[in-house]
Computed example of a mutant assay.
Amino acid sequence: MSHEIEIHADGTAAFVSANTPGWHRLGVVAPGPMTVPEALKLGQLADWNVRMEPLVAAVAGSKCLECSKPLGDKHDDMCVTGDHEGQDDSRIVDEHDTTHAVEVPNNRAVVRTHPVTGLPEVLSVGGLDYTPISNEEMGQTLQAILDQSGAIVDTAGSLRGGLDTFITARLPKGIMVGGADPVELNLAGFNYFRPGKSSEFLITPVRVVCANTQAAALYNFRSRYTVRHSPNAPQRIIEAREALKITFDYRDAFADEAEKMIKAELTIKEFERLCREIWPAPDPEANSAVKDRDDALTGTLMQIFKGETNENIKGKKTRGTHWSGYQTVVEYLDHHAPVRGEDADSGRIRAERALVGKARDTKELAFNLFQVA
Protein backbone atom coordinates (compact mmCIF):
# COMPACT_ATOMS: atom_id res chain seq x y z
CA MET A 1 0.00 0.00 0.00
CA SER A 2 1.35 3.39 -0.88
CA HIS A 3 0.59 4.89 2.54
CA GLU A 4 2.50 2.10 4.32
CA ILE A 5 0.41 2.58 7.48
CA GLU A 6 0.47 -0.68 9.44
CA ILE A 7 -2.78 -2.60 8.94
CA HIS A 8 -3.47 -5.41 11.40
CA ALA A 9 -5.21 -8.72 10.74
CA ASP A 10 -8.41 -7.45 12.36
CA GLY A 11 -8.56 -4.61 9.82
CA THR A 12 -7.58 -1.81 12.20
CA ALA A 13 -4.91 0.70 11.21
CA ALA A 14 -2.11 1.96 13.47
CA PHE A 15 -2.76 5.66 12.94
CA VAL A 16 -4.49 8.52 14.74
CA SER A 17 -4.96 12.16 13.81
CA ALA A 18 -6.55 15.08 15.62
CA ASN A 19 -9.71 16.62 14.15
CA THR A 20 -8.91 15.91 10.50
CA PRO A 21 -8.40 12.42 8.98
CA GLY A 22 -5.33 11.60 6.93
CA TRP A 23 -5.61 11.48 3.16
CA HIS A 24 -5.63 7.68 3.34
CA ARG A 25 -8.77 7.77 5.55
CA LEU A 26 -7.34 5.10 7.85
CA GLY A 27 -7.16 4.82 11.61
CA VAL A 28 -8.84 6.92 14.27
CA VAL A 29 -9.78 10.61 14.22
CA ALA A 30 -9.59 12.13 17.69
CA PRO A 31 -12.16 14.86 18.39
CA GLY A 32 -9.55 17.32 19.58
CA PRO A 33 -5.97 17.81 20.85
CA MET A 34 -4.27 14.73 22.26
CA THR A 35 -1.67 14.15 24.92
CA VAL A 36 1.22 11.85 24.04
CA PRO A 37 -0.21 8.88 26.05
CA GLU A 38 -3.55 9.32 24.32
CA ALA A 39 -1.90 9.44 20.90
CA LEU A 40 0.17 6.32 21.62
CA LYS A 41 -2.92 4.41 22.74
CA LEU A 42 -5.21 5.53 19.90
CA GLY A 43 -2.44 5.03 17.33
CA GLN A 44 -1.76 1.49 18.67
CA LEU A 45 1.81 2.37 19.64
CA ALA A 46 1.54 1.75 23.39
CA ASP A 47 2.86 -1.23 25.39
CA TRP A 48 4.91 -2.76 22.60
CA ASN A 49 7.62 -3.73 25.11
CA VAL A 50 10.26 -3.74 22.39
CA ARG A 51 13.16 -5.85 23.60
CA MET A 52 16.14 -7.86 22.42
CA GLU A 53 15.93 -11.66 22.43
CA PRO A 54 18.50 -14.35 21.51
CA LEU A 55 18.51 -15.13 17.81
CA VAL A 56 18.61 -18.77 16.74
CA ALA A 57 18.81 -20.50 13.39
CA ALA A 58 17.18 -23.82 12.52
CA VAL A 59 20.02 -25.95 11.14
CA ALA A 60 19.52 -29.41 9.64
CA GLY A 61 22.02 -32.05 10.71
CA SER A 62 22.86 -35.57 9.56
CA LYS A 63 21.41 -37.61 12.41
CA CYS A 64 18.17 -37.84 14.39
CA LEU A 65 18.49 -35.71 17.50
CA GLU A 66 16.98 -38.46 19.67
CA CYS A 67 18.13 -41.84 18.38
CA SER A 68 21.17 -40.71 16.33
CA LYS A 69 20.11 -42.70 13.28
CA PRO A 70 21.50 -41.11 10.09
CA LEU A 71 19.37 -39.23 7.59
CA GLY A 72 17.45 -41.70 5.40
CA ASP A 73 17.66 -44.58 7.88
CA LYS A 74 14.85 -45.86 10.07
CA HIS A 75 14.40 -44.54 13.62
CA ASP A 76 14.90 -46.89 16.52
CA ASP A 77 11.72 -48.61 17.66
CA MET A 78 11.73 -46.55 20.87
CA CYS A 79 12.43 -43.18 19.17
CA VAL A 80 9.49 -40.80 19.72
CA THR A 81 10.83 -38.42 17.08
CA GLY A 82 10.06 -41.06 14.47
CA ASP A 83 6.36 -41.08 15.35
CA HIS A 84 5.23 -38.72 12.56
CA GLU A 85 1.55 -38.11 13.10
CA GLY A 86 -0.54 -38.63 9.98
CA GLN A 87 2.29 -40.33 8.05
CA ASP A 88 2.95 -43.96 7.23
CA ASP A 89 4.88 -46.16 9.62
CA SER A 90 8.09 -46.20 7.60
CA ARG A 91 9.76 -44.12 10.35
CA ILE A 92 12.41 -42.79 7.97
CA VAL A 93 14.69 -40.06 9.38
CA ASP A 94 14.07 -36.80 7.50
CA GLU A 95 15.56 -33.29 7.75
CA HIS A 96 12.99 -32.16 10.32
CA ASP A 97 14.16 -34.93 12.66
CA THR A 98 17.76 -33.70 12.45
CA THR A 99 17.10 -29.96 12.78
CA HIS A 100 18.36 -28.24 15.90
CA ALA A 101 18.48 -24.62 17.08
CA VAL A 102 21.87 -22.88 16.84
CA GLU A 103 22.34 -19.51 18.51
CA VAL A 104 23.44 -16.77 16.13
CA PRO A 105 26.47 -14.95 17.59
CA ASN A 106 26.78 -11.14 17.71
CA ASN A 107 23.14 -10.62 16.75
CA ARG A 108 19.79 -10.54 18.54
CA ALA A 109 16.18 -10.34 17.46
CA VAL A 110 14.27 -7.06 17.93
CA VAL A 111 10.93 -8.28 19.32
CA ARG A 112 7.71 -6.47 20.22
CA THR A 113 4.46 -7.52 21.81
CA HIS A 114 1.93 -7.17 19.01
CA PRO A 115 -0.59 -4.41 19.91
CA VAL A 116 -3.59 -6.47 18.73
CA THR A 117 -2.75 -10.15 19.24
CA GLY A 118 -0.57 -9.73 22.32
CA LEU A 119 1.87 -12.27 20.86
CA PRO A 120 5.63 -11.72 20.43
CA GLU A 121 6.63 -10.62 16.94
CA VAL A 122 10.10 -10.18 15.44
CA LEU A 123 10.58 -6.75 13.87
CA SER A 124 14.23 -6.94 12.78
CA VAL A 125 17.71 -8.02 13.81
CA GLY A 126 20.20 -5.87 15.70
CA GLY A 127 23.75 -6.12 16.97
CA LEU A 128 24.81 -6.63 20.58
CA ASP A 129 25.10 -2.87 21.14
CA TYR A 130 21.61 -2.13 19.79
CA THR A 131 19.21 -1.02 22.55
CA PRO A 132 15.68 -0.20 21.40
CA ILE A 133 14.17 3.16 22.27
CA SER A 134 10.55 2.56 23.14
CA ASN A 135 7.69 4.57 21.72
CA GLU A 136 6.97 5.65 25.30
CA GLU A 137 10.52 7.01 25.69
CA MET A 138 10.19 8.98 22.46
CA GLY A 139 6.79 10.20 23.62
CA GLN A 140 8.07 11.27 27.03
CA THR A 141 10.80 13.32 25.39
CA LEU A 142 8.29 14.88 23.03
CA GLN A 143 5.94 15.61 25.93
CA ALA A 144 8.72 17.34 27.88
CA ILE A 145 9.15 19.70 24.93
CA LEU A 146 5.44 20.20 24.48
CA ASP A 147 4.90 21.03 28.14
CA GLN A 148 6.90 24.22 27.66
CA SER A 149 5.62 25.15 24.22
CA GLY A 150 1.89 24.53 24.53
CA ALA A 151 1.97 22.34 21.44
CA ILE A 152 -0.69 19.72 20.71
CA VAL A 153 -0.16 16.23 19.34
CA ASP A 154 -1.49 16.06 15.82
CA THR A 155 -0.72 12.57 14.47
CA ALA A 156 0.86 9.29 15.52
CA GLY A 157 1.22 5.97 13.78
CA SER A 158 3.19 2.95 12.70
CA LEU A 159 4.69 2.34 9.27
CA ARG A 160 6.16 -0.64 7.41
CA GLY A 161 4.86 -3.33 9.73
CA GLY A 162 6.10 -1.61 12.88
CA LEU A 163 9.65 -0.86 11.69
CA ASP A 164 9.02 2.90 11.83
CA THR A 165 6.80 4.88 14.20
CA PHE A 166 6.12 8.59 14.43
CA ILE A 167 4.53 11.30 16.56
CA THR A 168 4.00 14.81 15.25
CA ALA A 169 2.84 17.97 16.98
CA ARG A 170 1.88 21.46 15.86
CA LEU A 171 3.28 24.37 17.83
CA PRO A 172 0.41 26.86 18.18
CA LYS A 173 2.58 29.94 18.40
CA GLY A 174 3.79 30.45 14.85
CA ILE A 175 5.81 33.21 13.28
CA MET A 176 4.82 35.88 10.80
CA VAL A 177 6.77 36.33 7.59
CA GLY A 178 6.56 39.83 6.21
CA GLY A 179 4.05 40.65 8.92
CA ALA A 180 1.41 38.66 7.06
CA ASP A 181 2.54 35.17 6.01
CA PRO A 182 1.83 32.72 8.85
CA VAL A 183 4.51 30.10 9.36
CA GLU A 184 4.04 27.52 12.10
CA LEU A 185 6.50 25.04 13.48
CA ASN A 186 6.01 21.30 13.44
CA LEU A 187 7.75 19.01 15.88
CA ALA A 188 8.13 15.44 14.68
CA GLY A 189 9.61 12.42 16.41
CA PHE A 190 10.57 9.38 14.35
CA ASN A 191 11.46 6.01 15.87
CA TYR A 192 13.10 3.22 13.86
CA PHE A 193 13.36 -0.41 14.95
CA ARG A 194 15.91 -1.54 12.39
CA PRO A 195 19.73 -1.56 12.33
CA GLY A 196 21.56 1.42 10.94
CA LYS A 197 18.71 3.88 11.60
CA SER A 198 18.92 6.36 14.47
CA SER A 199 15.76 7.77 15.96
CA GLU A 200 15.39 11.50 15.41
CA PHE A 201 13.51 14.66 16.26
CA LEU A 202 12.79 17.38 13.70
CA ILE A 203 11.63 20.95 14.11
CA THR A 204 10.34 22.31 10.82
CA PRO A 205 8.51 25.52 9.83
CA VAL A 206 5.32 24.88 7.86
CA ARG A 207 3.39 27.26 5.62
CA VAL A 208 -0.18 26.92 6.77
CA VAL A 209 -1.67 27.83 3.37
CA CYS A 210 -0.47 24.62 1.72
CA ALA A 211 0.78 22.55 4.66
CA ASN A 212 4.19 22.00 3.08
CA THR A 213 7.00 21.05 5.38
CA GLN A 214 9.77 23.54 5.13
CA ALA A 215 12.90 22.46 6.93
CA ALA A 216 14.58 25.85 6.61
CA ALA A 217 17.39 26.25 9.12
CA LEU A 218 19.75 29.12 9.78
CA TYR A 219 23.44 28.72 9.28
CA ASN A 220 24.92 26.73 12.20
CA PHE A 221 21.40 25.79 13.34
CA ARG A 222 20.07 22.24 12.96
CA SER A 223 16.42 21.21 13.08
CA ARG A 224 17.29 17.54 13.34
CA TYR A 225 18.61 15.65 16.34
CA THR A 226 19.39 11.96 16.07
CA VAL A 227 19.37 9.46 18.92
CA ARG A 228 21.36 6.30 18.34
CA HIS A 229 19.88 3.01 19.58
CA SER A 230 22.55 2.17 22.15
CA PRO A 231 22.82 1.61 25.92
CA ASN A 232 23.27 5.35 26.54
CA ALA A 233 20.22 6.26 24.47
CA PRO A 234 18.16 7.58 27.43
CA GLN A 235 20.89 10.14 28.21
CA ARG A 236 21.10 11.06 24.52
CA ILE A 237 17.35 11.63 24.48
CA ILE A 238 17.70 14.09 27.37
CA GLU A 239 20.42 15.94 25.48
CA ALA A 240 18.26 16.07 22.35
CA ARG A 241 15.33 17.38 24.36
CA GLU A 242 17.42 20.20 25.80
CA ALA A 243 18.81 21.07 22.38
CA LEU A 244 15.35 21.21 20.85
CA LYS A 245 14.12 23.53 23.60
CA ILE A 246 16.85 25.99 22.70
CA THR A 247 15.89 25.92 19.03
CA PHE A 248 12.50 27.42 19.79
CA ASP A 249 14.33 30.75 19.92
CA TYR A 250 15.05 30.16 16.23
CA ARG A 251 11.49 31.18 15.24
CA ASP A 252 12.28 34.88 15.75
CA ALA A 253 15.62 34.55 13.96
CA PHE A 254 13.91 32.84 11.03
CA ALA A 255 11.34 35.64 10.86
CA ASP A 256 14.06 38.31 10.88
CA GLU A 257 15.93 36.61 8.04
CA ALA A 258 12.70 36.16 6.06
CA GLU A 259 11.89 39.88 6.46
CA LYS A 260 15.27 40.79 4.98
CA MET A 261 14.73 38.37 2.09
CA ILE A 262 11.32 39.88 1.29
CA LYS A 263 12.75 43.40 1.15
CA ALA A 264 15.70 42.48 -1.09
CA GLU A 265 15.19 42.37 -4.86
CA LEU A 266 16.51 39.41 -6.81
CA THR A 267 17.29 39.64 -10.50
CA ILE A 268 16.67 36.75 -12.85
CA LYS A 269 20.39 36.50 -13.52
CA GLU A 270 21.17 36.27 -9.80
CA PHE A 271 18.36 33.76 -9.30
CA GLU A 272 19.83 31.57 -12.04
CA ARG A 273 23.29 31.84 -10.48
CA LEU A 274 22.07 30.77 -7.03
CA CYS A 275 20.08 27.89 -8.48
CA ARG A 276 23.22 26.67 -10.23
CA GLU A 277 24.89 26.40 -6.83
CA ILE A 278 22.14 23.97 -5.88
CA TRP A 279 21.88 22.20 -9.25
CA PRO A 280 25.17 22.63 -11.18
CA ALA A 281 24.98 22.76 -14.96
CA PRO A 282 25.68 19.44 -16.70
CA ASP A 283 29.00 18.77 -18.30
CA PRO A 284 29.14 19.91 -21.94
CA GLU A 285 29.94 16.31 -22.89
CA ALA A 286 26.89 14.95 -21.05
CA ASN A 287 24.38 12.91 -23.05
CA SER A 288 21.15 14.37 -24.35
CA ALA A 289 19.00 12.78 -21.61
CA VAL A 290 20.98 14.59 -18.89
CA LYS A 291 20.73 17.88 -20.76
CA ASP A 292 16.99 17.40 -21.32
CA ARG A 293 16.45 16.87 -17.59
CA ASP A 294 18.43 20.00 -16.85
CA ASP A 295 16.38 22.00 -19.36
CA ALA A 296 13.17 20.77 -17.71
CA LEU A 297 14.51 21.69 -14.27
CA THR A 298 15.58 25.22 -15.20
CA GLY A 299 12.41 25.80 -17.20
CA THR A 300 10.19 24.80 -14.27
CA LEU A 301 12.18 26.90 -11.79
CA MET A 302 11.90 29.97 -14.01
CA GLN A 303 8.18 29.43 -14.54
CA ILE A 304 7.58 29.25 -10.78
CA PHE A 305 9.82 32.25 -10.05
CA LYS A 306 7.95 34.42 -12.56
CA GLY A 307 4.51 33.00 -11.83
CA GLU A 308 1.57 33.98 -9.68
CA THR A 309 2.61 31.71 -6.81
CA ASN A 310 5.30 34.22 -5.91
CA GLU A 311 3.29 37.33 -6.71
CA ASN A 312 2.59 38.43 -3.16
CA ILE A 313 1.83 37.43 0.41
CA LYS A 314 -1.59 38.82 1.29
CA GLY A 315 -1.08 41.90 -0.82
CA LYS A 316 2.61 42.41 -0.11
CA LYS A 317 4.79 42.25 -3.20
CA THR A 318 7.25 39.39 -2.98
CA ARG A 319 7.81 38.40 -6.62
CA GLY A 320 11.34 39.13 -7.70
CA THR A 321 12.71 39.03 -4.14
CA HIS A 322 15.13 36.74 -2.36
CA TRP A 323 12.14 35.29 -0.46
CA SER A 324 10.38 34.32 -3.68
CA GLY A 325 13.62 32.77 -4.92
CA TYR A 326 13.78 30.58 -1.84
CA GLN A 327 10.07 29.74 -2.08
CA THR A 328 10.54 28.78 -5.73
CA VAL A 329 13.04 26.11 -4.70
CA VAL A 330 10.70 24.87 -1.96
CA GLU A 331 7.72 24.66 -4.31
CA TYR A 332 9.78 22.84 -6.94
CA LEU A 333 10.99 20.24 -4.43
CA ASP A 334 7.54 19.71 -2.88
CA HIS A 335 5.42 19.66 -6.02
CA HIS A 336 7.44 19.40 -9.22
CA ALA A 337 10.66 17.44 -8.65
CA PRO A 338 10.41 14.00 -10.30
CA VAL A 339 9.96 10.99 -8.01
CA ARG A 340 10.80 7.39 -8.63
CA GLY A 341 7.97 4.96 -8.04
CA GLU A 342 4.43 4.25 -9.04
CA ASP A 343 2.02 7.12 -9.51
CA ALA A 344 0.02 5.96 -6.51
CA ASP A 345 3.13 6.32 -4.35
CA SER A 346 4.03 9.83 -5.51
CA GLY A 347 2.21 11.66 -2.72
CA ARG A 348 3.74 9.52 0.00
CA ILE A 349 7.21 9.74 -1.52
CA ARG A 350 7.04 13.53 -1.77
CA ALA A 351 5.77 13.91 1.81
CA GLU A 352 8.38 11.58 3.23
CA ARG A 353 11.14 13.17 1.17
CA ALA A 354 10.12 16.63 2.41
CA LEU A 355 10.45 15.53 6.03
CA VAL A 356 13.46 13.27 6.15
CA GLY A 357 14.94 13.00 2.69
CA LYS A 358 17.43 14.84 0.53
CA ALA A 359 14.86 17.55 -0.25
CA ARG A 360 15.05 18.79 3.31
CA ASP A 361 18.82 19.28 3.05
CA THR A 362 18.37 21.05 -0.28
CA LYS A 363 15.89 23.45 1.35
CA GLU A 364 18.43 24.22 4.08
CA LEU A 365 21.05 24.96 1.42
CA ALA A 366 18.58 27.16 -0.49
CA PHE A 367 17.65 29.13 2.63
CA ASN A 368 21.32 29.84 3.31
CA LEU A 369 22.01 30.82 -0.32
CA PHE A 370 19.05 33.20 -0.64
CA GLN A 371 19.67 34.91 2.70
CA VAL A 372 20.58 38.60 2.61
CA ALA A 373 23.85 39.62 4.23
Results as ranks from 00 to 15, higher is better:
residue 148 Q to K: 14
residue 142 L to R: 10
residue 113 T to F: 00
residue 116 V to H: 06
residue 149 S to Y: 00
residue 143 Q to F: 06
residue 135 N to W: 02
residue 134 S to W: 08
residue 135 N to Q: 09
residue 141 T to A: 14
residue 137 E to I: 10
residue 147 D to G: 05
residue 118 G to I: 05
residue 132 P to D: 04
residue 113 T to C: 00
residue 109 A to F: 00
residue 109 A to S: 09
residue 144 A to E: 13
residue 131 T to D: 09
residue 133 I to D: 04
residue 112 R to F: 02
residue 127 G to V: 11
residue 109 A to Y: 00
residue 125 V to I: 15
residue 144 A to G: 07
residue 118 G to M: 07
residue 133 I to L: 13
residue 113 T to K: 06
residue 137 E to L: 13
residue 115 P to M: 08
residue 140 Q to I: 04
residue 124 S to W: 04
residue 149 S to M: 04
residue 143 Q to D: 15
residue 133 I to A: 03
residue 125 V to R: 10
residue 122 V to S: 15
residue 140 Q to S: 11
residue 130 Y to C: 00
residue 112 R to E: 10
residue 123 L to D: 12
residue 122 V to A: 15
residue 119 L to V: 08
residue 130 Y to T: 01
residue 144 A to P: 03
residue 124 S to R: 04
residue 126 G to E: 04
residue 110 V to E: 01
residue 147 D to W: 00
residue 136 E to F: 09
residue 150 G to F: 00
residue 135 N to H: 07
residue 131 T to E: 13
residue 117 T to A: 06
residue 113 T to Q: 08
residue 145 I to K: 02
residue 127 G to E: 11
residue 111 V to N: 01
residue 107 N to G: 02
residue 137 E to W: 10
residue 142 L to C: 12
residue 125 V to T: 14
residue 134 S to Y: 09
residue 144 A to W: 01
residue 146 L to V: 05
residue 122 V to C: 15
residue 113 T to L: 05
residue 119 L to Y: 06
residue 117 T to V: 08
residue 152 I to V: 13
residue 112 R to M: 12
residue 143 Q to R: 11
residue 116 V to E: 09
residue 113 T to E: 05
residue 139 G to S: 12
residue 126 G to S: 04
residue 117 T to W: 08
residue 121 E to A: 15
residue 110 V to K: 02
residue 113 T to M: 03
residue 134 S to A: 13
residue 119 L to M: 13
residue 125 V to Y: 11
residue 107 N to C: 04
residue 135 N to E: 10
residue 143 Q to S: 15
residue 124 S to N: 12
residue 115 P to H: 07
residue 111 V to T: 06
residue 136 E to H: 11
residue 128 L to V: 13
residue 108 R to Y: 05
residue 140 Q to W: 03
residue 119 L to A: 14
residue 143 Q to T: 12
residue 119 L to E: 15
residue 130 Y to P: 00
residue 118 G to P: 05
residue 140 Q to A: 12
residue 137 E to Q: 15
residue 132 P to A: 03
residue 111 V to M: 10
residue 125 V to G: 06
residue 124 S to C: 02
residue 129 D to F: 07
residue 116 V to F: 06
residue 131 T to R: 14
residue 114 H to R: 07
residue 117 T to E: 08
residue 147 D to L: 03
residue 142 L to T: 14
residue 132 P to M: 03
residue 144 A to F: 01
residue 131 T to Y: 12
residue 136 E to M: 09
residue 146 L to R: 09
residue 138 M to E: 05
residue 143 Q to K: 12
residue 131 T to V: 14
residue 116 V to Y: 04
residue 138 M to P: 02
residue 139 G to W: 05
residue 134 S to D: 13
residue 136 E to Y: 09
residue 151 A to R: 02
residue 113 T to V: 07
residue 122 V to N: 15
residue 129 D to H: 11
residue 107 N to M: 13
residue 110 V to D: 01
residue 151 A to Y: 01
residue 151 A to G: 15
residue 117 T to F: 06
residue 107 N to V: 05
residue 107 N to P: 00
residue 147 D to R: 02
residue 115 P to T: 06
residue 150 G to H: 02
residue 141 T to I: 07
residue 141 T to V: 13
residue 125 V to C: 07
residue 125 V to E: 12
residue 132 P to C: 03
residue 138 M to Q: 10
residue 134 S to N: 10
residue 146 L to A: 11
residue 122 V to D: 14
residue 114 H to A: 11
residue 111 V to P: 00
residue 133 I to N: 10
residue 149 S to Q: 09
residue 150 G to W: 00
residue 107 N to Q: 14
